[in-house]
Design a protein around this nucleic acid. Structure first.
Lengths: 110, 110
DNA sequence: TTACTATATTCCATAAACAGAATATATAAA
DNA sequence: TTTATATATTCTGTTTATGGAATATAGTAA
């Protein structure tokens, strides 16, 4: 119950849903997520930590950068379900589409 | 996004998960749920309202009693997924099992 | 070493979630 | 009508969630 609640609470927040949807396509460093979402870096960092504690994302350090990606591995017995579920959700949501557009601009023009 | 968040927040609470698992097998009146869960009636009533607003349960009035059941109909585009998902979850959770045991006692001995 | 940069953590103020007491509503029975 | 019962709503205090400023940490470069 405790584990499931941690996962459900993790995805029950608009910013964290947006982050999950950004990570759906790419492995991303924190600064890209910060720019795509438009909130302050510490705020994004805390949201990422909540997703990580829920086992939904993994991080990988590379020099100064920390890259986050969806945890496809079965770290918990629910995340496969939740990831598959989210893949089907919000794909025509304007907020999500805008995030992805902003991300693409950042990736191209940097 | 808004609709999805309402649903996710609705199931991101231990009491509401317990209620959903009780309703998995039965249509139940509020007073049975109150006794099985062990919280005050107004508290349960508010939780039921949150589940109802999320489209996860339906209510039916019969005299003084109000019966709640899982909404199997496709009131929203997510609840089939969430209901199917929850059916697979928490089936060996001790808290959930105890709730169901208490419910059975109430049903037998009333 | 110092300076710089990316990320994480701490602190604080505000907002939302929660439980329960008190109250309101609605139906049934006397 | 009055009384009783089941449920819903309002109110209040407490806890939890949230965002941002300030700060800390860690790695890179000069």
């Amino acid at each position: 119950m405790r584990e499931l609640l941690i996962i459900l609470k993790a995805i029950s927040n608009p910013v964290r849903l947006r982050i999950m949807k950004l990570l759906e396509n790419d492995e991303l460093c924190v600064c890209y997520i910060v720019k795509a979402i438009g909130l302050k870096q510490p705020t994004i960092s805390k949201h990422l930590n909540i997703l990580k504690n829920a086992g939904l994302v993994r991080d990988r350090k590379e020099g100064l950068w920390v890259y986050y990606k969806l945890s496809k591995e079965n770290i918990n017995k629910y995340n496969v379900v939740t990831n598959n579920f989210l893949t089907k959700c919000l794909n025509d949501d304007q907020l999500i589409l805008n995030d992805k557009k902003r991300l693409n601009n950042i990736k191209c023009c940097n």
